[in-house]
Design a protein around this nucleic acid. Structure first.
Lengths: 148, 148
DNA sequence: TATTGTTATACTCTATAACTATA
DNA sequence: TATAGTTATAGAGTATAACAATA
């Protein structure tokens, strides 16, 4: 259903131009909503993935989170140090370790989620029901765009 | 039309939880799509705002871009050094300078847009017409969320 | 005294290049 | 030789605190 006519392609370019700055301005303040004791948005995201998708290798987690392997090494170092994830060496291939979220990790995620959601949900509450529905519908589209 | 019932509020919190990681994973790679000679996404966004909204003070631009004033000072330093914006002191209040985009700025924006849009538009092309329409519809909603 | 903007400083986020260990 | 991961390094992005200039 996406005929690549010249008109459609101009419209797509215009969409790209308009979408990027809006997203940037919206996500920027979200990143710095961080209480001192809590973990960063980046760490939270990795932890959420481990919770939802289950244990996986560092490489797979990096791919899922769209970061390069060295970035994930750093993220996992922090998370392990704080006891939020544990590594178990895969006996069949000792280069890989399987990373899993711990109970502490799940607990922290719960309180973290409450704290952050309070801020974002407060903003979301200013929208109409229809606008929130439109946002909800667009989440899988962003996932599709980020994939591959 | 957004009755604050308990159910609606739970749904809003769930939306907040789901939206954040998706946006993070989608925007992360966009930031690093940078050719060596070109300017960063942050600089592009400020320049786009000056182009669309017209000349304004550093403080107003910082507010619009949702950054703190010192961050904008840095951004403007780079842009001015590269001749992409010019400052003109407001004679009625010599603390303020009015920042305006230059012709070079407009030119750079044009080529920058082409290059970046090629990448994002390529991804957008994988969507259906309906999915692109859904994204387009959601831009003003993000703007509303970022505002204030 | 209040407001606008800048300087100084520091921490997060992320990447690339080079390396190590295992297969 | 190829793959998974880590270490070393660096640059972008952003904030807070302290300061200077002007109103």
């Amino acid at each position: 259903m996406s005929a690549p006519t010249k008109q459609a392609s101009n419209a797509t370019a215009a969409l790209a131009s308009a979408l990027r700055p809006s997203l940037l301005r919206f996500t920027r303040p979200m990143r710095s909503q961080r209480a001192d004791e809590s973990i960063t948005l980046t760490h939270t995201s990795a932890l959420v993935t481990l919770e939802k998708q289950g244990a996986m290798s560092a490489g797979d987690l990096a791919a899922f989170e769209r970061v390069q392997p060295p970035s994930m090494t750093k993220i996992l170092g922090t998370l392990e140090q704080r006891g939020l994830v544990k590594r178990e060496v895969d006996p069949s291939d000792r280069r890989c370790a399987i990373i899993a979220i711990t109970d502490s990790g799940r607990e922290l995620l719960l309180s973290e989620r409450r704290r952050r959601d309070a801020l974002l949900a407060q903003r979301l509450a200013r929208l109409t029901t229809e606008e929130r529905a439109a946002l909800r519908a667009v989440i899988p589209i962003f996932d599709k765009l980020a994939a591959e």
